[in-house]
Design a protein around this nucleic acid. Structure first.
Lengths: 250, 250
DNA sequence: GGTCAGCGCG
DNA sequence: CGCGCTGACC
């Protein structure tokens, strides 16, 4: 079973690249983040014409996630983690072949100590609460906006304690894995660097300054292969994230 | 001698199309309007590399005109018509081979009776004052924002008395021709419709709803041939105006 | 409809 | 840097 996670930073702008990725990889499920559109504007037809099903959790301008699947999947949840009293479109969960698959877009947190940072930690706690209640095989695919360890950062010193890398964020991430009994699929397979995001502002990709903040977290599924499609960062108008491709077996 | 006038509606967006037009037509002079940039931002190098000279009258965000020439031309005037006490970048005039060539971007006028409308009529009066003082062969090339006669409008009834077609605008346009002893080069050659502008909003081009508001007005030069490059309206991101190509002999 | 400015955001 | 938004202008 092939699973892909990709923060597209606007599906409007990246639709052609998404369709190309589906053509090239034919995954069982593709989890998209930052589609930045409402469900009404989602280009359902473009996917349907090519035989893909889509479940969408959208909103205006910001965030927004989707699950593109080869087989029809059953919607289980969308919006914020349950119990959060928040409308932000950051989750869509579905059941397919007895597996729960979730597209996840965690808050960025802006700056350590900010309101947004507190919100991010709280969001992770609620996500862990919810994921711990889910039964059976599970795959969380998405942009978690956390680089779990120093080896997930091109220059750990420079990023030391900064947003995406602070110890409370890393603890929240570890807590999610522990409480929901999830495995980081990439780290189960390799210790090599596997960056997935490069800051547009710093021209970070050209300089090799990446972070690993997109993840495939699985339970009841065995990671078999993982790779990052960095070639999608070399395209005309690339997203700042590259697609993360993971193969798992039951 | 081949002269072209084109309102490009942003040179930033249309640069490739302008360079293609120069390749295809190799005119003696190309008058551009609505370049929408300051002189500092003007892509001089792109023209110079291909052997073209440029004289630019630019401003931030709106308006802005330029003259692209095969031979180096001598700058005579830029800005507003003299005597207007106005900084709007709507004119650039130069002398080339003893001929005065001017790129003209007349005010739109918004609505009949508005402040902008009064300004437009005043602007035309000052343009006529100035053009009447110029000696020798003369060519005014540009977007005059006036359809001189009903046959210059796809649907004269619909446009009757409206902006671009009102009688005071037409009178101001005729007055310019009379006082500066200018000939409308297109109408000297043909009575056929020769639309140059189509409203984006109405999807006017697809419907054939054009107006002739771009003109080549000449003195001491004999019009030989005229055409509108409507194929430039079929391109990827077209301007709302098509290039007007005119050949004249001394 | 399509351009630009200026702003919020990451 | 590269998104989306609002608002002005044509």
């Amino acid at each position: 079973m092939k699973l892909i996670s990709w923060n597209v930073n606007s599906l409007r702008v990246r639709l052609a690249q998404v369709l190309q990725l589906l053509d090239e990889e034919t995954p069982d499920a593709l989890a998209l983040q930052e589609i930045k559109m409402t469900e009404e504007l989602f280009p359902l037809a473009a996917f349907a014409e090519r035989g893909w099903h889509a479940l969408v959790c959208g909103q205006k301008a910001y965030h927004g996630v989707a699950l593109i699947t080869r087989k029809k999947a059953e919607l289980m949840h969308k919006g914020a983690p349950p119990g959060m009293d928040d409308a932000a479109a950051r989750l869509v969960a579905a059941r397919m072949d007895g597996i729960t698959i979730v597209s996840v877009y965690a808050p960025n947190g802006q700056e350590v100590g900010s309101q947004a940072y507190a919100y991010k930690l709280n969001w992770f706690a609620h996500l862990a609460d919810w994921a711990a209640t889910l039964e059976g095989p599970l795959a969380l695919l998405g942009d978690f906006n956390v680089a779990p360890e120093d080896r997930d950062v091109h220059d750990p010193k420079r990023w030391q304690g900064k947003i995406l890398c602070s110890e409370p964020e890393r603890a929240a991430f570890r807590d999610l894995l522990a409480r929901a009994r999830l495995t980081d699929a990439v780290r189960a397979l390799t210790e090599a660097p596997m960056f997935t995001w490069w800051d547009y502002r710093l021209r970070a990709f050209e300089r090799g300054w990446g972070l690993r903040i997109d993840h495939a977290l699985v339970r009841g599924l065995s990671p078999v292969r993982a790779c990052v499609r960095t070639d999608y960062r070399g395209m005309e108008r690339p997203s700042d994230h590259a697609p993360l491709v993971v193969e798992v077996s039951p």
